[in-house]
Simulated scan of single mutants.
Amino acid sequence: MKPYRHAVAAVLAGAAFALAGCGGGGSNPLDNPPSVDNPVGGGGQRLSYEYFQKCINPIFLEPLPVHHNGVTSVNTCASAGCHDNTSGTGGAFRVVPDAQPVDLADPANTPEVVRETDMYKNFYSAQGEVLPGAPLQSRLLTKPMVRNVLHGGGLIFDDAEHEYVKRIEYWINRPMPAGQDEFSAAAHSMFTPPDPAVGACNTE
């Protein structure tokens, strides 16, 4: 029996050595390896919340001509049959029609507070349809223009120079500086004069 016990001991010793070589740590080579910490990933650049709530969200509420199967009608993006957040059928993009603008100049409206509002829900949903810096690869624009993609809601913008097309392009093309959030004051330059409260929405 002694040769057998020696053989078992040799196998266990070899296994312990192999486990230690695979990352086992501590005094016991049969312990689990130490935890591996993943580096914190850097998020992509954010689009401007202020420009969105003043210049983009109103587009979703505006009655617009819709061209579909040779028929022209008038509807809004936020309507019940389109992107309404409760009864819409327009895919993942959702709009809360009665979302109210948030006064970012009010110290009580911290980022945490704003992110709980209906307007922020609209912002978040719209940004999910966007590739910052690439408007012609962003569904928020290519779908209503029916550019290389189908849109169940029909053709909304048949003119690339339409005011609303230019606004959406402008918003997508101007993400906030790297390392700054969606509430960055850098967005003030997107208005003329550079004050979101009174300025007009820039488009170029």
Score class of each variant (00 low, 15 high):
69 N>F: 06
119 M>H: 07
66 V>H: 02
17 F>S: 14
121 K>E: 02
130 V>A: 07
70 G>Q: 09
123 F>A: 07
64 L>N: 10
135 P>Q: 11
124 Y>I: 13
123 F>P: 07
138 S>P: 06
28 N>W: 00
77 C>Y: 07
14 G>Q: 09
21 G>E: 06
22 C>A: 14
144 P>V: 10
146 V>T: 14
54 K>F: 09
87 S>I: 13
140 L>D: 10
34 P>I: 12
129 E>V: 04
74 V>P: 06
83 H>N: 09
130 V>C: 02
102 V>Y: 05
36 V>G: 10
24 G>I: 01
77 C>D: 01
49 Y>P: 04
135 P>E: 12
73 S>L: 01
18 A>N: 04
32 N>I: 03
54 K>L: 14
106 D>R: 07
53 Q>K: 10
89 T>C: 00
71 V>R: 11
111 P>Q: 11
72 T>A: 04
127 Q>L: 15
149 V>R: 05
141 L>C: 03
125 S>H: 06
42 G>L: 15
135 P>N: 03
83 H>Y: 01
133 G>V: 02
122 N>M: 11
99 A>G: 03
16 A>I: 12
97 P>E: 06
83 H>T: 00
13 A>I: 11
133 G>S: 11
60 F>M: 13
63 P>Y: 06
110 T>W: 04
114 V>M: 04
72 T>N: 04
23 G>A: 05
20 A>W: 00
145 M>Q: 08
134 A>M: 14
98 D>F: 07
76 T>H: 00
69 N>I: 05
95 V>P: 07
89 T>I: 10
14 G>N: 04
37 D>I: 12
60 F>V: 02
130 V>R: 00
78 A>E: 03
42 G>T: 12
21 G>M: 13
126 A>T: 09
